[in-house]
């Protein structure tokens, strides 16, 4: 493998990691702070993407569409919190899984009814739509670089928010012992609502910025949700720092695994056998990583401090 190929794969891996981070950040906060398993989090990603396409069709301006999509995704998340999720906080995890799974089915179908089953596409904003020449044969999309930069910026802001502000302090306290925070006079319900809305909005944001490189279709968030769960388990539940590092790790392992495992196997095996085993092994790579992390550090790489096991 040439060095440029390796460079491209590194960029791709980081870009996937950044998207995973945006989805997993909300998931880890909601799970860490509220102890609430929200399978419908991946649907928020899909909703973000659809809303962006929809508003883009109305306004013709990507930035405006992004902003409107974020607000609409937030509104939808708060509505869902009010109508469905709020009633599940005190129930056990099985009830939460069942109810949020129902929300997935409902929203996937709703999206299909409204926008149809065929995938939709959208272009990135014009000044970022171009490509630059990476090698003689290959152009690389500027938008992918933009995603990486946006992701790092959001990660920085989030880190600041969680570690340096009062609301962040409450969130961290909530992640450690929600009952105690409530007893100290903090309106824990409102804190939950803010965390939930914010997390869902981040997932919607990920959907918005991913829309120009992937296709927008019903169920697009379901696969990513599973990967996002892998990320928060590796990173340590409730920890933003852990989630960020785990997301990049998972993005890189997944991308590099897919491009190198088959080649490595070809050194030892027949090409046809390598082609059989390689892709299967590559899809397992992140789960093997997760199993290894869990074996050595059952709490994840960076568990939220003081959190009860």
């Amino acid at each position: 493998m040439s060095s440029t190929l390796l460079l491209i794969q590194l960029l791709n891996g980081i870009q996937l990691g950044v998207l995973l981070f945006l989805i997993a950040a909300g998931l880890t906060l909601v799970f860490g702070v509220m102890g609430f398993i929200n399978l419908a989090h991946g649907v928020q990603y899909m909703i973000g993407a659809y809303l962006t396409v929809w508003f883009y069709g109305m306004t013709g301006h990507f930035g405006a569409a992004l902003l409107l999509a974020l607000l609409a995704a937030l509104a939808l998340a708060l509505f869902l919190e009010f109508a469905v999720f709020r009633h599940l906080y005190d129930r056990d995890h099985l009830d939460q899984v069942l109810a949020t799974f129902g929300v997935i089915l409902f929203l996937n179908q709703a999206v299909k009814v409204i926008w149809g089953p065929t995938p939709l596409v959208i272009s990135p904003p014009e000044f970022l739509a171009g490509t630059f020449r990476l090698t003689e044969n290959l152009n690389y999309s500027i938008w992918r670089i933009a995603i990486i930069m946006i992701g790092f910026t959001v990660a920085g802001l989030l880190w600041f928010l969680v570690t340096k502000t009062r609301i962040g302090m409450l969130v961290r306290a909530g992640a450690t012992n929600a009952g105690m925070v409530g007893a100290l006079g903090v309106n824990i319900r409102r804190l939950f609502m803010i965390v939930f809305g914010f997390g869902a909005m981040l997932a919607g944001f990920a959907g918005s910025i991913a829309a120009p490189i992937y296709s927008v279709e019903p169920g697009m968030g379901d696969g990513l949700l599973i990967t996002a769960f892998v990320v928060i388990v590796i990173g340590g539940i409730g920890s933003i720092r852990g989630t960020f590092i785990a997301a990049l790790l998972v993005g890189l392992v997944d991308t590099l695994g897919r491009s190198t495992i088959t080649d490595i196997l070809k050194l030892f095996l027949e090409p046809s056998a390598a082609n059989q085993i390689g892709p299967a092994l590559a899809s397992m790579a992140i789960y093997i990583l997760m199993a290894a992390v869990l074996f050595f550090r059952p709490e994840g790489l960076f568990p939220a401090q003081g959190r009860r096991a």
């Binding site: 791709n12 995938p119 490189i213 279709e217 697009m220």
Partner: peptide, 30 residues
């Protein structure tokens, strides 16, 4: 499969005359 950038990088590297591809549905769109 969602992101084909890894595969596309390899296609560029291989300098082939043609690409044979079977990618039905949303995969083809992406």
């Amino acid at each position: 499969h969602k992101d084909f950038s890894a595969e596309i990088a390899r296609i560029a590297d291989a300098e082939a005359d043609a690409l044979f591809i079977f990618m039905p549905g949303g995969m083809g769109v992406r």
